[in-house]
Amino acid sequence: MMRKGRSSRGYGWLSPLLWLSLLLSACLGMEGLKGLFRLVEPDSQALIYDRADFIVLLGRHLLVVGVAALLAILLGVGAAVAVTRPGGRDFLPLVGQLASIGQTFPPVAVLALAVPVLGFGTLPIIVALLLYGLLPIVRNTLAGLEGIDPGVAEAARGMGMTGGQRLRQVELPLAAPVILAGIRTSVTINIATAAIGATVGASNLGDPIISGIVNGNTAHVLQGALLIGLLALSVDSLFARFQPASSS
């Protein structure tokens, strides 16, 4: 059923490709929208943000989010798997509660708390994103693994599959949609939080917005907001492509 669902849901490659191409063309051809920005900032000299190339800012943004997401996936899925194995079961209640309490922490507060400990720059952003991004991944991986039909789990054991075989062939594939939903949430939040990271010295797509607000240049704010919005939609539609079932 799952396999069949993918093509018939209408989530082809079309919408991610569309958003991606919009994002790239906006990055490269911001000059072309000058007329539009003139409307909001009729008197400004520097109509287009020019302290760095948009494409470079996009690259940095993606790098920070990507590295944090990759580490968060490795650590988060790893931790959730570890606490659902017989050896680590003792830690399951604590980790489960921590993951759900942690989700009430606002990302901005986590980011702000990371700075006194880790200082300014790119590294603290990555660490903060990693820590915060862990939570939805851990929570969903736990939910996915714990949500497997007990009959299926019992049959897998009764048929003589080893722990590793059960994990790889049964548990992870069955939990995959839920895990993927967790990764999607994690990345969506992190794209937004990384932008706020521009206030603590990480240079990325948040830069034009922050500097626009500081200097009162609405055009710069709009440029940054437009690019971040497009980036979020591109990434989200990519996830939607791979995750057919209900994401709610």
């Binding site: 039909d149 897998a156 003589g160 049964v170």
Partner: peptide, 21 residues
């Protein structure tokens, strides 16, 4: 060994436990 034992013994349950994927 647990797995070896179980592979020698057929096992069928009420909920079938068929792997849905």
């Amino acid at each position: 060994r647990e797995e070896v034992l179980r592979r020698r013994i057929g096992y069928a349950i009420q909920s079938t436990g068929l792997f849905p994927h």
